[in-house]
Simulated scan of single mutants.
Amino acid sequence: MAQRTAVVTGASSGIGAASARALAADGWHVIVGARRVDRIEALAEEIGGTAIALDVTDESSVEAFCAAVDTCDLLLNNAGGAFGATSIADADVDEWQAMYDVNVLGTLRMTKALLPKLIASGDGQVITIGSIAAREPYKGGGGYNAAKHAVAALTRVLRIELLGQPVRVCEIDPGMVETEFSLVRFGGDEDKAAKVYEGLTPMGPGDIADAVRWVASRPKHVNIDQILMLATAQTSAQVAHREL
């Protein structure tokens, strides 16, 4: 049986890198894409995969990346992120635009470009990393909430539209995961980022990667539509028990 190929976006760190390692350990050939080429090249060497530069917000970058992918059995749409936590009244439109472009349009660009190859595989899968922010609005999360709600809608519509085609579609929505996410959101402010996880044990990238590898390993007749994953200390987007 030929080795199956998985494409992972946003693979330079966090959930993307952990998922690439998990899939490779399960026997997949993993093609990793991200803007930080030095990181994905090191990762590809580690896991025996392939690194290709990718900026999901750039149409020409997506086209070049996908043209270099000969076959695709699994697409993990992981690239995304939050920028800022301002109120609607003080919203920075540029931040909203950036969140929409990477989370929503980035997912759209990659899915649209690789869909013919996923269908041609005879048993393709699209797994999209969403967020609890896709299910629950919260104060200061307007732009990210809007973007992740849109990603969820895109993913669920794709599932409906592909009914009868040999492609499965899954949405994994994590809560608190300690990655570079909060550091990016708060513009590199390490103190603010640390407070997000203060007094509790958040999930790690490997926890989400375990879910990715499990979904990817289900038999052809089983589709895992949606997964919500939270740390034990968290019950909703902004409700958590902290030992302070």
Rank of each mutant, 00 (worst) to 15 (best):
R4S: 10
T5D: 07
A6Y: 04
T9W: 14
A11G: 13
G16T: 09
A20G: 06
I31K: 02
G33E: 10
R36P: 02
R39F: 07
I40R: 08
G49M: 06
L54H: 12
T57D: 11
E59Y: 04
A64L: 05
C66G: 06
V69Q: 12
D73T: 07
D73Q: 09
N77I: 08
N78I: 08
A82V: 00
A85K: 11
T86A: 15
A91H: 11
D101R: 13
R109I: 11
A113V: 04
A113W: 01
L114V: 14
K117Q: 12
K117C: 08
A120Q: 13
G124R: 09
A133P: 02
Y138Q: 01
N145Q: 00
A153R: 10
R156I: 00
L158A: 03
R159W: 01
V167K: 05
E171N: 14
V177A: 09
E178K: 13
T179F: 06
E180I: 00
F181N: 01
L183C: 00
R185H: 07
F186R: 05
G187Q: 04
A194G: 09
E198R: 14
L200A: 05
G204M: 11
P205T: 02
D210H: 12
W214G: 06
A216L: 04
S217L: 04
R218A: 12
K220C: 05
I224D: 06
I227E: 10
T235G: 02
A240I: 12
H241F: 05
H241V: 12
H241P: 00
